[in-house]
Design a protein around this nucleic acid. Structure first.
Length: 575
RNA sequence: AGGGCGGUGGCCAAGCGGUAAGGCACAGGUCUUUGGAACCUGCAUGCGUAGGUUCGAAUCCUACCCGCCCUGCCA
């Protein structure tokens, strides 16, 4: 199964293809297959802690671990690292499962929990005590820290380090039986307090924690630490390649020590760099702050880089997978530009999103020479990129709305839209020419634009070779449906909010204009029953997705991403 | 400072001793009933720096510089 797969660059459908076939992880796996290290098996896992929602950084990790397993015809597990009952909740377990499924991965029956292994882990603890490789330590947390030493100075042995096997057995049993208060004792590995790798300075394996675990009936009052849980969980599941964040690189010697000392099956751990994205923050703790302090409206706020947020924003799982595959895998620190993500969603939606017309900031246009009561149904193609998308009919009448920005009384050079005396095309309809403008006497605001139309240009075309000044989208005033449109901008004003003010509060860089709500939008009537979650291209504007806040009498759209706008770029350049 | 890991164009990233892939971004252009899309062209005499080995070095060696991670009974 590990044949190279060709990747066509324009066909996003091919995005079920996973990461580039030459990355260093695949090379390592190829070597292991060649040397028959794991009998040719490839078995990976994704091990989230259920203490928050998954974000785009997790998507990268999932695409790497699960995607590679898929490509090699291997297996992959979903395992919840639930070794800390006080920060973990079942709500998160459900959310994580929903998001992984949505991304398009099926772990079948291989759904595991570190808590499944608590009994085994406890036995491992006892085994290490028997081998005189673990001891119960009575040092307080503060003392433990002091004894550990610093980056440059070695630690000191705990005074409890040389307890007898019997005493350790009794004490450890007592810990499990609930005889000691929280924080009073730990079980520690007996390794080397002088190791330059701090993880090897007698790390804590078990702490006393009188807290119920949501998945376990038995009342545990000791819980294994992540370091004592993770590697053995991979071992128990027969994982061949434990792919993880580079931050665990210096934990690898510890995991290997546990595996060797315990004499159990050793997976191979390979580390890669985590994802960083411009103009946002990733990382559970920071996202939790945003949610809990109310800077956004919940974990699925469309401004968040969470998978739930991206989904609500209108991102497709295909686009996210495509993004993850495009950015590659390496060990170098990286900061991916948000434009890269936007590219992936645009190219997916360009191919698949039906085109519709909606006017975000409407201004009325009256076509004076169009028969007053007449309504014509005009045919419009649903997607020029997809010949199977078909057509629909759109009502046209004497009064329509166009985008306020599509008219200028005194247009600058290169303004290729409506202006006094100019003729433009109404997409799918007619050519119209601006004859006059009516303004509000007090404010000077344009309230109505009067135009004439050319009946010979039905469908928006004439055979006389006439060139018009542009093409506008529009919506029939009488037939339009009202809509609310939520426009999103980046959540932060700084490219790197976390590094923008050395050590200072990143929260200050939240973009006060990250959400703009438009309440007077007018959409073509075909959108009345658009289902929540459905995605469209609003012609000439961008891609939009129906928000679940939509009700029978109020349509709500989220802007997923605007269309590339070369006019905006010209304007920006002229400033 | 001790340890670990990194440093290839604005952002990613191939490259594994034979003379710098690709993508995003950007800049031009073609086409166009979306200023969209598509298509074409351009974009590193240079691979953190300095030496060395070699016919030949981003790739090997030496030294140095810079960045990230590690002193939770979090994961």
């Amino acid at each position: 199964m590990n044949q190279p797969h060709s990747k066509s660059k324009s066909d996003i459908q091919a995005s079920t293809h996973n990461t580039s076939d030459t990355n260093f992880i695949r090379q390592a796996i190829d070597e292991d297959i060649a040397s028959n290290r794991f009998d040719g098996r490839v078995h990976t896992r994704f091990p989230p802690e259920p203490s928050g929602y998954l974000h785009i950084g997790h998507a990268k990790a999932i695409c790497i671990s699960f995607g590679i397993a898929e490509d090699y015809g291997g297996l992959y597990n979903l395992r919840f690292d639930d070794s800390n009952p006080i920060t973990e909740e079942s709500e998160y377990v459900e959310a994580i499962k929903r998001d992984v499924k949505w991304l398009g991965f099926d772990w079948e029956d291989r759904e595991f929990y570190a808590s499944d292994y608590f009994e085994t882990l406890y036995e491992y603890g006892i085994k290490l005590i028997r081998k005189e490789k673990a001891y119960v330590c009575d040092l307080t947390p503060e003392e433990t820290r002091t004894y550990r030493g610093t980056l440059t100075t070695p630690g000191k042995n705990s005074p409890y380090r040389d307890r007898s096997v019997e005493e350790n057995m009794t004490l450890f049993q007592g810990m499990r039986n609930g005889e000691f208060p929280d924080g009073s004792r730990t079980l520690r590995a007996k390794i080397d307090m002088t190791s330059p790798n701090l993880n090897m300075r007698d790390p804590v394996m078990y702490r006393v924690l009188h807290a119920p675990h949501s998945r376990i009936d038995e009342n545990w009052c000791i819980y294994p630490t992540y370091d004592f849980t993770h590697g053995q969980s991979d071992s128990i599941e027969g994982i061949t390649h434990s792919l993880c964040d580079v931050q665990f690189e210096d934990h690898r010697p510890l995991y290997d020590w546990f595996l060797e000392t315990l004499e159990i099956y050793p997976p191979r751990q390979i580390e890669f760099a985590r994802l960083n994205l411009t103009y946002t923050v990733l990382g559970k703790r920071k996202l939790r702050v945003l949610v809990q302090e109310g800077h956004v409206n919940g974990w699925d706020d469309p401004r968040l880089p969470t998978l739930a947020g991206l989904r609500r924003r209108g991102y497709t799982p295909e686009a996210i997978r495509d993004f993850c595959n495009r950015i590659g895998v390496s060990k170098a620190d990286n900061l991916i530009e948000i434009a890269q993500l936007e590219y992936s969603i645009r190219s997916d939606l360009n191919l698949h999103a039906p085109r519709v017309m909606a006017v975000l900031n409407p201004v009325k246009v009256v076509i004076d020479n169009y028969p007053e009561a007449q309504v014509e149904m005009l045919e419009a193609d649903n997607n020029p990129e997809d010949e199977n998308a078909g057509t629909r009919e759109i009502p046209f009448s004497r009064e329509i709305y166009i985008e306020r920005d599509d008219f200028m009384e005194d247009p600058p050079r290169k303004f290729y839209r409506l202006a006094p005396g100019r003729e433009v095309r109404l997409k799918h309809a007619y050519y119209i020419t601006c004859e006059s403008v009516i303004k509000d006497e007090n404010t000077g605001e344009i309230v109505e634009i009067h135009c004439s139309y050319d009946p010979e240009t039905r469908g928006g075309w004439s055979d006389d070779g006439r060139r018009v000044q542009g093409t506008l989208h529009w919506v029939s005033a009488e037939h339009a449906v009202d809509a609310e449109v939520r426009l999103y901008d980046s959540l932060f004003t700084e490219r790197e909010p976390e590094n923008a003010a050395d050590g200072a509060d990143w929260i200050q860089f939240i973009n006060p204009n990250s959400l703009e709500v438009l309440n007077t939008c007018k959409a073509e009537p075909s959108l009345v029953d658009a289902a929540a979650g459905s995605r469209f291209q609003f012609l000439r504007i961008g891609y939009f997705c129906v928000d679940p806040d939509t009700t029978l009498d109020r349509l709500v759209f989220n802007r997923t991403v605007p269309l590339r706008d070369s006019w905006a770029r010209i304007q920006k350049g002229q400033k």
